[in-house]
């Protein structure tokens, strides 16, 4: 399907939303959540929210962009719900993690449980294993909402930092710090829960 071809429709055509945008939104959600079931639920919620708020749609973007924006918010909510640890500020988690992994001179602690471990196979080689995505999702879900939003916008959606600043209202220098902390924490989370975890060895490979 060529997603670049899109014919704008009148907004009262919600009967056609599912046929026109359902699969696109489904794939968009699937790349950000772990299961088809979750992705379908998110798409359903997106359409229902769109139906309620269609009067607010001003036609400044395409219908698909508008729907994708709603879906993105739904995905953020989904991450927030899935977070096992809520409300720990990213600064606090970072300080704690950094303190654990580095010595008093702020160099990596030589303890093999603390310094970066050998990751094999590499993250991109793990992509076919859906369990890997569950772990990533859980790790992103542990971040506070704003941090996870910023991380997804930058690393998954590939937005420029200036665009992210405009959307979130975060200053550029704060954004750099925030992204560094997110990456630091996510790397550690992936390491603990995947790369040095026995789960990797037993995780089912359901391509």
């Amino acid at each position: 399907m060529d997603i670049t071809k899109f014919t704008p429709l009148p907004l009262n055509d919600e009967n056609q939303w599912v046929d026109l945008h359902g699969d696109y939104l489904f794939r968009y959600a699937l790349s950000r959540v772990s299961s088809e079931h979750n992705a379908e639920d998110l798409v359903q919620e997106t359409f229902l929210t769109a139906l309620k708020s269609k009067d607010a749609f001003e036609g400044r973007s395409t219908q698909r962009t508008w729907l994708t924006g709603i879906l993105r918010n739904k995905i953020m909510e989904h991450y927030r719900k899935g977070a096992r640890f809520k409300g720990i500020p990213v600064d606090e988690s970072y300080e704690q993690c950094s303190h654990e992994l580095m010595d008093k001179h702020k160099h990596w602690d030589l303890d093999p449980n603390h310094s970066p471990a050998d990751w094999a196979p590499s993250p991109s080689q793990c992509l076919e294993n859906s369990e890997f995505w569950v772990v990533i999702q859980q790790c992103v879900g542990k971040l506070p909402v704003k941090a996870s939003q910023v991380y997804i916008m930058r690393e998954i959606d590939g937005l420029d930092t200036s665009e992210i600043c405009a959307v979130t209202g975060v200053s550029e220098s704060n954004l750099w710090v925030l992204l560094h902390r997110c990456r630091f924490l996510l790397r550690r989370c992936l390491e603990l829960n995947w790369f040095v975890s026995p789960a990797k060895a037993t995780g089912g490979d359901d391509q």
Binding site: Y28, W119, P123, S124, I156, R183, R187
Partner: peptide, 15 residues
Amino acid sequence: GMRKAARINALEFGQ
């Protein structure tokens, strides 16, 4: 590696 995986995933599933 984490960045590359995130981008590949978005492309693979998204398009």
